[in-house]
Computed example of a mutant assay.
Amino acid sequence: MIADEMAERLAVLQPTRLEVIDESEGHRGHAGYQEGGQSHFRIRMASPALAGLSRLQQHRLIHTTLGDIVPRIHALALELEAA
């Protein structure tokens, strides 16, 4: 599952809190929805790796860490904080 794969990759950032939530069902009938989910995600994460980074830098770090997962999904919402 994509959510598990995301959590595994984000573990390298040593999060103190990590939630990877599949919100796909809430987007049924909307653009990018795929039957069975795995298209719309929300990540809530706190990590010391985010300290001192601007919001843009934090988002870039997450996208880089997720790598080839990002193009396989339709939407990714990020709620990030430095720990």
Results as ranks from 00 to 15, higher is better:
Met1Ile: 12
Met1Asp: 11
Ala3Val: 02
Ala3Lys: 08
Asp4Lys: 06
Asp4Glu: 03
Glu5Cys: 14
Met6Tyr: 11
Met6Glu: 04
Met6Cys: 01
Ala7Val: 07
Glu8Asn: 11
Glu8Met: 03
Glu8Ile: 13
Arg9His: 04
Arg9Thr: 02
Leu10Gly: 08
Ala11Leu: 15
Ala11Asn: 09
Val12Ala: 03
Val12Leu: 10
Leu13Phe: 15
Leu13Ile: 12
Gln14Phe: 12
Pro15Ile: 04
Thr16Asp: 13
Arg17Gln: 08
Arg17Asn: 14
Leu18Glu: 10
Val20Asp: 02
Val20Trp: 04
Val20Leu: 11
Val20Phe: 03
Ile21Arg: 14
Glu23Leu: 03
Glu25Ser: 13
Glu25Ile: 05
Glu25Pro: 00
Glu25Cys: 14
Gly26Ser: 04
His27Asn: 04
His27Met: 02
Arg28Met: 15
Arg28Asn: 14
Arg28Tyr: 14
Gly29Leu: 10
His30Trp: 11
His30Arg: 10
His30Tyr: 01
Ala31Phe: 13
Gly32Ser: 04
Gly32Phe: 10
Gly32Met: 05
Tyr33Asn: 00
Gln34Lys: 13
Glu35Ala: 15
Glu35Gln: 15
Glu35Ile: 11
Gly36Leu: 01
Gly36Met: 00
Gly36Phe: 05
His40Ala: 10
His40Asn: 05
Phe41Pro: 03
Phe41Gly: 05
Phe41Tyr: 13
Arg42Trp: 05
Arg42Gly: 12
Ile43His: 07
Ile43Ala: 07
Arg44Lys: 14
Arg44Met: 02
Arg44Val: 11
Arg44Leu: 12
Met45Val: 06
Met45Glu: 08
Ala46Tyr: 05
Ala46Trp: 11
Pro48Arg: 10
Ala49Tyr: 07
Ala49Asn: 04
Ala49Thr: 12
Ala49Cys: 07
Ala49Ile: 07
Ala51Trp: 12
Ala51Gly: 03
Ala51Leu: 09
Gly52Ala: 04
Leu53Thr: 02
Leu53Glu: 00
Leu53Val: 00
Leu53Ala: 09
Leu53Asp: 06
Ser54Leu: 06
Arg55Gln: 11
Gln57Ile: 10
Gln58Pro: 05
His59Ile: 09
Arg60Cys: 06
Arg60Gly: 04
Leu61Gly: 15
Ile62Trp: 06
His63Gly: 11
His63Asp: 15
His63Cys: 12
His63Leu: 15
His63Pro: 05
Thr64Ser: 09
Thr64Tyr: 13
Leu66Val: 08
Leu66Arg: 09
Gly67Leu: 01
Gly67Thr: 11
Gly67Arg: 10
Asp68Phe: 11
Asp68Lys: 01
Ile69Asp: 03
Val70Met: 10
Pro71Met: 08
Pro71Cys: 07
Pro71Ala: 13
Arg72Lys: 13
Arg72Ile: 00
Arg72Cys: 01
Ile73Cys: 14
Ile73Gln: 15
His74Arg: 02
Leu76Lys: 01
Leu78Met: 11
Leu78Glu: 00
Leu78His: 08
Glu79Thr: 01
Leu80Ile: 14
Glu81Pro: 13
Glu81Val: 02
Ala82Gly: 07
Ala82Gln: 04
Ala82Val: 01
Ala82Leu: 00
Ala83Glu: 13
